[in-house]
Amino acid sequence: MAFLCKWTIRTVGACYLVALALLLIGTFGLFGQERDPLSGVFLIPLGLPWVSLLDGVSDGLKPWLAALAPAINLFILMALCRAFSRKKA
């Protein structure tokens, strides 16, 4: 179980870092890339269901909270893995 937890956390973390990098590259036009308003689209599925709860938030905070939403899922995964690994020991 610990092996599966470690690789799940690593995979989700790597996907999150790649999605954040694509957001930064597309938003600021780094490395000669054109600016793209949809560069953060890969963060949406990683941040579900928390992204869907952002309807009542002001428009200025939505991009920041959407970028942080996958971190919530990552922390939940880490907490679950720790809880299950302590339960067995």
Rank of each mutant, 00 (worst) to 15 (best):
I44S: 09
T11D: 06
L4C: 04
W64N: 10
A69Y: 13
V41G: 14
V57P: 03
F42Q: 00
W64S: 14
L46Q: 07
N73T: 08
S85R: 09
V57E: 10
G29M: 02
I76F: 12
S39N: 08
L46G: 07
L22F: 11
C15A: 13
T8Q: 07
P63I: 09
I9T: 00
L4N: 10
F28H: 13
F3P: 05
T8F: 07
A71H: 01
A14D: 01
F31L: 15
V51A: 08
V18R: 09
C15Q: 03
L80E: 09
T27V: 04
L77D: 00
F28M: 14
A21T: 08
A2D: 04
G60N: 04
K6E: 01
W7C: 10
G60D: 03
A79Q: 15
A2Y: 01
K87P: 02
V57T: 03
S85F: 04
I72T: 06
G40Q: 07
L48M: 11
M1T: 08
V51T: 11
S85G: 02
Y16Q: 01
L48V: 09
A66G: 06
F28S: 15
I76W: 11
P49D: 13
L43K: 00
A14I: 05
F84C: 08
A89Q: 09
G29N: 15
L80G: 09
L23W: 13
L46F: 07
S52Q: 15
L17T: 04
G40A: 13
S39F: 00
V57G: 05
G26Q: 12
G47M: 02
A69P: 08
N73C: 01
L17C: 12
V57S: 03
K87W: 09
L74K: 01
I9D: 00
L77Q: 07
L74C: 08
S52K: 11
L48K: 11
G60A: 08
M78Y: 01
L22S: 15
A69I: 11
Y16G: 02
L77S: 02
R86M: 03
L4P: 02
M1G: 08
L4E: 11
I72M: 02
R82I: 05
V18K: 12
A89M: 04
Y16N: 05
R82D: 09
L74R: 01
L43A: 09
I72G: 06
A83D: 13
I25L: 15
V12H: 12
Q33E: 12
A79F: 11
W64M: 12
R86D: 07
R35E: 13
L22A: 15
A14L: 05
D55Y: 13
G32N: 11
A69H: 01
D59Y: 02
V12N: 02
A2M: 02
P37T: 10
L54K: 00
I44V: 03
L68W: 06
K88T: 03
A21V: 01
T27P: 04
A79V: 11
K62M: 15
A21N: 00
V51R: 13
F84I: 04
K87H: 10
V12M: 12
E34N: 07
S52N: 08
K88F: 05
Q33D: 12
L61T: 04
W50D: 02
S39L: 09
I9H: 02
